[in-house]
Design a protein around this nucleic acid. Structure first.
Length: 937
RNA sequence: GCUCGAGUGGUGGAAUUGGUAGACACGUUGGACUUAAAAUCCAAUGACCAUUGCGGUCGUGCGGGUUCAAGUCCCGCCUCGAGUACCA
């Protein structure tokens, strides 16, 4: 009987669907287990072989945990808002909803084909208004919250208002930017409503401000720091410049410390934790205030090395520094302003590529050293970043390499403050092994002592204090795009006001054109019905805005990460219309036990979602302040791209080994035109694209040989391998097993379809084992002791390997087990039935089929995972042959004691050992895996 | 530059965490069955030497060290990958 996987897989996929096998409900009698995948973004290219890698792993774990008796929640949905869908809509004139529908349908078909055990009853898309209603609600909650530094948690903005009414903001515990208008309660009460709202914007966790943003002209939108890679946009690779714009942001900085601390409590890969820590970038230092000579301005700098303060010879401020204009003196104004203008036009990429270029300009002003009162020139340079620290630094050439180079370049004084250390060539940046000199009251002290002393002194004279700085910036939240959640805000006299829960969802309006408007407005500016009627609480035509109760609505939409920052909570109760997640569901499912997804989200989704979780926890809407106990990162699968070589300026393509000295450019071709020997099918290539139609292919040995390179799989690189082909040719079970067999789950690895056969053969062998007097004629005989041993060893190994996500070695164990059982001709039901349960997380279809053929009525998914018999696993030393390490040295040490009886019986059995011992009594026998490795006398 | 991770046969990768390195699979070679091919099954497969015998030597990027014992631990290098980018 043939292993007809197509028939089998269709049958069981239908069965699971009809019986709703994997739909779960709250069951207080069973322990819960929540397994989550990062939900996919349904792009037009469909799934390639790399996407399911993580899904297969999490599916194996889900099925395993079901066998272990857990109530497993394993949901799936779609992250469907975002740039690519919108770009596609602009190109084709289709509505993004249509393309999303088409893409989702295709994704679903592909996912179903692989036999995942998702609970589809909980499916949603982030672009469903029933879902983004709650994304908008969370935004409003953030808008109406501030961060209480003293309590270390977010609170309602109402509490802050009542504090202002009582005490003003003099001693406020609220998190905000440093330089803020100070007021007492009396003054607060006299402020106009609008002024009050303006002030509150400085405290709200979601706030509007005019700030410097990363502007991407080609995409027509601003981008967050994590959406920029190497100075260009992550999507499209377009250039990014700095621009001041009125933007919504999130005060994620308030949570910086807690985002670091929280990492201690979760079982996430150390690499992800490290990336997040670096991104948040905590640094402990001191802030020092410098008075400006003949001015009332003070410049505050942040430094981690206040101990070097007597080496400071100048200050440097960023070109964007807030009071830069007041520092520029008439004599330097022209060159300074030119410099500022020039640096504002630089793109991020230029800034990065010119790191080594020293540039700057003197302001004409001087700052006064807090201790010596010496005049220090104030310079402007773009090596200082405007939005880190205070945007100003005290420059200590002898202790910082950049300051050193800057001072040398502009011939600024360098003071040597390190005793017996040569600083003629470069700065001395170590924090140990030095004693200070030329440093007044710090002379002779080392790093730790001088640090303590200088901070003490600074505090005493009111010129400085300890401070902690973070690299993490506020997260910019506005996107000038159409295909995202509308921000539920309207404007009255340019002051933003939030809608209320009963107003939601604020649905995305119809627009004629998805491109930003001429005036630079986002596409929502094209909507006719996009104004807010305060009285009737509804969206109306914006022509009526002059009416005193009709106000414009926010035109920006939310960024891609908004919808994905809380979706894991929604799955617990996705159909709830009254709240974002019901109380009962939350109490039962609590949090995600296992989260599987790519590490590329380390500084994006995985950070933002932790922030929102903590925020919602603070506001008492959630019970946990970390949402995922364990995280596994699946690695990328690389594809082997194919290249042909065009001789520059011609229509000739030269075979790889003939290139030699020709000046060629590489052109990608679809890998389906290339065979295993790297020969190109020229006919297919000609038919593929017009540019190749009349091309001249220069052959070697009558063949065109392509070049090959490993790259990330993507549609634009024509190197995609679709899981569909593997499923059709070998079956889903083979695909599942092979992807797991490929190597450790976290590793980046190239796809190589040659090995598929091996796994497929294993499944065929597995199928055969059951039919060889197995399934249809199961013997009633007790299994032999050897087969029981093999079987129990396999259970133990499989259990261990699944729990440690070592799926590749787990499959090896299966293969050994099947090979050995085949050899032993084992056909005992006592072994074969539980073996199906054991293997079913990996190959669910074939297992179900054999299970039913063996006459079992229940679906295998409901069966218990077999337990192993410990007594069968213990290996008796005496039953094993003795071997002695030939390189054995007779020394005194011991590492394993045996009773004298045992030693005797071993020695008596073996001639060779006796020869080695020469009649002496061994003191120690080192035994490993039941075999003697070494004997010590 | 800084931070983290990794280097094991022709290939993907094992090694119970210090205990017989190379499991399992791919590939290759030989054999069986076939008129033939495919499929299937069997055997060999780290390198070198000895193969009329059981065998021997060297081997986990390089150089040292600790240990009865090192792929694994320590010190110093080299190479590759990931993250980050003037963070004061």
């Amino acid at each position: 009987m043939e292993y007809d996987f197509i028939k089998i897989e269709r049958k069981w996929q239908k069965f699971w669907k009809d019986k709703k096998t994997f739909n779960v409900v709250i069951n207080d009698k069973l322990p819960k287990f929540y397994v989550l995948d990062m939900f996919p973004y349904p792009s037009g290219a469909g799934l390639h072989i790399g996407h399911p890698l993580g899904y297969i792993a999490s599916d194996i774990y889900s099925r395993y945990m079901r066998h272990r008796g857990f109530n497993v929640l394993h949901p799936q949905g779609y992250d469907s808002f975002g740039l690519p869908t919108e770009q596609y809509a602009i190109l084709t004139g289709q509505h993004p909803i249509e393309t999303t529908n088409i893409n989702v349908k295709r994704y679903r078909e592909q996912l179903d084909k692989i036999g995942f055990s998702f609970d589809w009853s909980r499916e949603f898309r982030t672009s469903d208004s029933s879902y983004y209603k709650w994304t908008q609600w969370i935004f409003i909650l953030l808008f109406n919250s501030y961060y209480n530094k003293k309590k270390g948690r977010a609170e309602s903005i109402e509490k802050l208002i009542s504090k202002f009414e009582k005490n003003g903001n003099e001693n406020s515990d609220a998190y905000s930017d440093e330089e803020i208008l100070k007021f007492d309660s009396k003054r607060w009460k006299n402020f106009s409503d609008e002024k009050k709202q303006e002030i509150l914007l400085d405290y709200r966790l979601a706030f509007l401000s005019r700030i410097e943003v990363n502007w991407c002209e080609k995409l027509g939108t601003v981008l967050a720091n994590d959406e920029i890679i190497n100075g260009v946009s992550e999507r499209g690779g377009f250039s990014v410049t700095k621009k001041k714009m009125l933007q919504w942001s999130m005060r994620i900085g308030a949570y910086a410390q807690r985002l670091i601390d929280g990492l201690e409590s979760v079982n996430w890969p150390e690499s992800i934790k490290e990336i997040q820590r670096n991104w948040i970038g905590k640094s402990v230092g001191t802030s020092i205030k410098f008075k400006v000579f003949k001015s009332d301005i003070k410049i505050e700098v942040f430094t981690t090395r206040p101990d070097t303060i007597f080496g400071a010879t100048f200050l440097t401020i960023a070109p964007e520094y807030k009071s830069v204009n007041k520092l520029i003196t008439p004599s330097t104004a022209q060159t300074a302003l030119d410099y500022i203008k020039k640096s504002s036009l630089k793109s991020n990429r230029d800034r990065i590529s010119n790191v080594k270029l020293i540039s700057g300009v003197f302001t004409g002003s001087y700052a006064l050293h807090p201790f010596s009162n010496e005049k220090l020139p104030i310079w402007i340079s773009d090596y200082v970043i405007g939005d880190y620290g205070t945007g100003a630094v005290m420059a200590v050439p002898c202790g910082d390499q950049r300051d050193f180079e800057f001072a040398k370049f502009f011939k600024i004084r360098i003071i040597d403050i390190f005793d017996n250390i040569d600083i003629s060539e470069k700065a001395f940046t170590q924090k140990d092994s030095f004693k200070l000199k030329n440093s007044s009251f710090l002379n002779g002290l080392n790093y730790n002592d001088s640090l303590k002393k200088v901070i003490e002194k600074l505090e005493k004279i009111g010129s400085g204090k300890s401070k902690i700085n973070f690299k993490l910036r506020d997260a910019i939240y506005s996107r000038q795009r159409y295909w995202g959640e509308p921000i539920p805000i309207y404007f009255k006299n340019n002051i933003p006001y939030s809608l209320e829960l009963s107003d939601l969802p604020l649905k995305l309006p119809e627009v004629k054109n998805y491109l930003p408007t001429k005036e630079g407005n986002p596409p929502l500016g094209n909507a006719i019905n996009w104004a807010w009627d305060v009285n009737n609480r509804c969206v109306v035509n914006k022509d009526k805005i002059d009416n005193k109760k009709i106000f414009p609505l926010e035109l920006n939409t939310m960024p891609g990460w908004a919808g994905s920052s809380w979706y894991f909570n929604r799955y617990m109760d996705s159909k709830n219309e009254d709240f974002f997640v019901g109380k009962k569901a939350l109490e039962y499912w609590e949090d995600v036990d296992l989260y599987v997804g790519g590490s590329e989200h380390a500084t994006g989704h995985l950070l933002y979602s932790r922030f929102w979780q903590k925020f919602l926890y603070d506001r008492n809407y959630l019970n946990k302040d970390e949402y995922a106990k364990k995280l596994i990162n699946q690695g990328m699968i690389l594809g082997l791209s194919a290249f042909i070589y065009r001789i520059k300026g011609s229509n000739k393509y030269i075979s790889k080994n003939l290139i030699k000295k020709n000046d060629v450019e590489k052109v990608r071709v679809d890998i389906s035109f290339v065979n295993n020997n790297n020969e190109l099918d020229i006919k297919k290539t000609r038919d593929w694209m017009p540019e190749f139609k009349n091309a001249n292919f220069i052959l070697e040995n009558e063949k065109y040989i392509v070049g090959r390179e490993l790259e990330k799989m993507s549609k634009s690189k024509y190197n995609i391998i679709s899981p569909d082909n593997i499923c059709n040719q070998f079956g889903a079970d083979t695909l599942r097993m092979y992807e797991m067999f490929l190597g450790p789950i976290e590793q980046t690895k190239p796809w190589n379809s040659k090995g598929v056969v091996g796994v497929h053969n294993f499944l065929k062998k597995f199928w055969k084992l059951y039919h060889k007097g197995g399934v249809f004629n199961v013997s009633k005989n007790n299994p032999s002791e050897s087969s029981l041993k093999i079987f129990n060893k396999t259970i133990k190994k499989v259990k261990h390997d699944i729990e440690s996500f070592s799926f590749n070695t787990c499959i090896s164990s299966f293969m050994i087990c099947i090979n050995e059982l085949t050899l032993l001709n084992c056909n005992s039901k006592k072994i074969l039935s539980p073996l199906l349960v054991l293997i079913s997380p990996f190959a669910p279809h074939i297992s179900e089929e054999l299970w039913s053929l063996m006459g079992n009525k229940k679906s295998i998914s409901k069966e218990k995972f077999p337990s192993y018999d410990d007594s069968l696993l213990i290996e008796n030393i005496k039953n094993y042959p003795i071997s002695i390490n030939g390189k054995m040295k007779f020394k005194k040490e011991f590492s394993y004691d045996l009773s004298s009886n045992e030693i005797e019986s071993i020695i008596l059995k073996d001639e060779k050992t006796k020869k080695f011992l020469k009649g002496e009594n061994p003191k120690k026998i080192i035994v490993v895996k039941g075999k003697i490795i070494n004997i010590v006398i």
